[in-house]
């Protein structure tokens, strides 16, 4: 099972490091990272493996949302199926 972590916020040093560190602490393996700058906004999506996550996905999503808030970022963690259903045939 995989999930998509999306991060949006003002660009600053250490965003990628911060998010990857949280993933590592919860045993989520980062499979792919894609990032871009939309004007001065930083947007990143990360595909993570959630098979061996230390906590249920719903708790991890809530945890990452809090982490985002503390750093002035908007972080969503959602099961990858929702995006495939909507965008891939």
């Amino acid at each position: 099972m995989k999930a998509v972590v999306s991060v949006i916020g003002k660009d600053m040093t250490g965003i990628l490091a911060r998010v990857s560190q949280e993933c590592a602490q919860q045993n989520a393996n980062v499979l792919e990272v894609s990032q871009t700058l939309l004007q001065d906004m930083f947007a990143m999506i990360m595909l993570i493996d959630i098979e061996h996550l230390h906590m249920p996905l719903s708790d991890f999503a809530a945890h990452m949302e809090r982490v985002g808030k503390d750093s002035g970022l908007v972080i969503h963690v959602m099961h990858e199926d929702i995006f495939h259903a909507m965008h891939k045939i």
Partner: peptide
């Protein structure tokens, strides 16, 4: 891999 645009569209 999903594109950033697709992920952001769904979240929006």
């Amino acid at each position: 891999m999903l594109s950033i645009h697709e992920v952001l569209e769904t979240i929006k």
